[in-house]
């Protein structure tokens, strides 16, 4: 009963006392509030509240007073379901590996993977750094190339018709077959890794940018032209900023491909790196170390994904303003 009243409690401040008194009878509502909340309720509750806050620009900018504790709570509630599901999966795996009588050389329990990862942390770290380097170097090259080519294509539509079929074809190449060849051609150094990372990430970035430019509001371009702006000016002032949301959508996707690309390249041949580490661990019948390296690469991918989200937030502050302050009736002043 207490839980069913709870959304009203938060959403409607003046009546909250009354509800908490009613709820206090059957169950101690004070305790259930912060610890044993069911997550979906929290999610539902936080949204209308932030919507109400948006009605006043001033309160949105200083939303700390209401928030402090509940803001942390909201974040916690958002990740709680995923964390729970992940924990359940690990527990099931652990139980199956332990009680099923399966040899650790076939399926090691998560606890063993963790312990071995800690024991081999030096080697893992040593092999992670080159992977990070290859990922970032390859991705940087890919971004640069995508930006330059997309801008060229934007100015020369004929180039687009020449290039796009080639680029699409490049996406049909199976990485498994290409990676050893690229290593064969370019050796065990950084070059083949950069090329392979670029191969998997360039096309999504290119498409994102080209479509982003095309999304520019026609009236903005017309207005700039009427102001006397040339094509170059229109590109910088309107087409490029218009492409930012597309760019970041592409960035979030392709940064995850980038790590996979780097590991594939290392798998095909490298002195150091997570890919070659996985390969040698597998050849030594150490699935626990393979999985430890997999966990590291997952963490790396997630960290890069998070970084991309963070950069997007910093680079596009207006995006959040748009979500919070849209159709704000209190701003409708008379001239």
């Amino acid at each position: 009963m207490a839980v069913s009243f709870d959304p009203l409690r938060r959403g409607d401040a003046p009546t909250s006392d009354r509800f908490s008194e009613e709820g206090a009878g059957p169950s101690p509502i004070g305790e259930s509030q912060d610890n044993s909340q069911s997550p979906p309720l929290r999610g539902v509750r936080s949204d209308p509240r932030s919507g109400r806050e948006a009605n006043c620009l001033a309160s949105r900018r200083t939303n700390a007073p209401q928030g402090g504790r509940s803001a942390v709570g909201t974040v916690f509630a958002k990740i709680l379901p995923a964390a729970l599901a992940f924990a359940l999966l690990l527990i099931a795996w652990e139980l199956y590996a332990r009680l099923g009588g399966i040899a650790p050389t076939v399926l090691p329990a998560p606890s063993r993977v963790l312990a071995q990862a800690w024991e081999n942390r030096a080697a893992l770290g040593e092999n992670t750094l080159p992977t990070i380097g290859a990922t970032l170097a390859g991705f940087a090259c890919s971004l640069l190339a995508a930006f330059v080519l997309s801008a060229l294509v934007d100015f020369l539509p004929a180039l687009r018709r020449a290039l796009f079929p080639l680029l699409i074809a490049s996406q049909t190449l199976p990485l498994v077959a290409i990676a050893p060849l690229v290593v064969l051609w370019f050796g065990f150094g950084l070059t083949p890794k950069i090329l392979l990372v670029a191969l998997v990430t360039f096309f999504p970035m290119m498409v994102a940018l080209v479509e982003g430019y095309a999304s520019t509001e026609r009236e903005i371009s017309q207005m700039l032209a009427a102001m006397g702006a040339g094509r170059w000016r229109i590109f910088w002032a309107a087409r490029l900023p218009s492409a930012l949301p597309y760019f970041f959508a592409g960035l979030r996707i392709s940064i995850t491909y980038a790590v996979v690309g780097a590991i594939f390249a290392e798998y095909a041949g490298a002195a150091k790196g997570l890919g070659i580490y996985m390969l040698s661990a597998k050849n030594n019948f150490r699935p626990d170390l393979v999985l430890a390296a997999v966990a590291v690469s997952s963490a790396l991918t997630l960290a890069l994904f998070g970084l991309a989200v963070l950069v997007q937030r910093l680079a596009m502050p207006w995006e959040r303003a748009g979500r919070d302050g849209k159709s704000d009736p209190s701003n409708e002043g008379r001239p």
Binding site: A321, G322, D324, N331, E332
Partner: peptide, 13 residues
């Protein structure tokens, strides 16, 4: 509203 983003304005503004 000099420093506001356009999305924070009403239609008339």
């Amino acid at each position: 509203f000099e420093r506001a983003w356009p999305a924070e304005l009403s239609g008339g503004m």
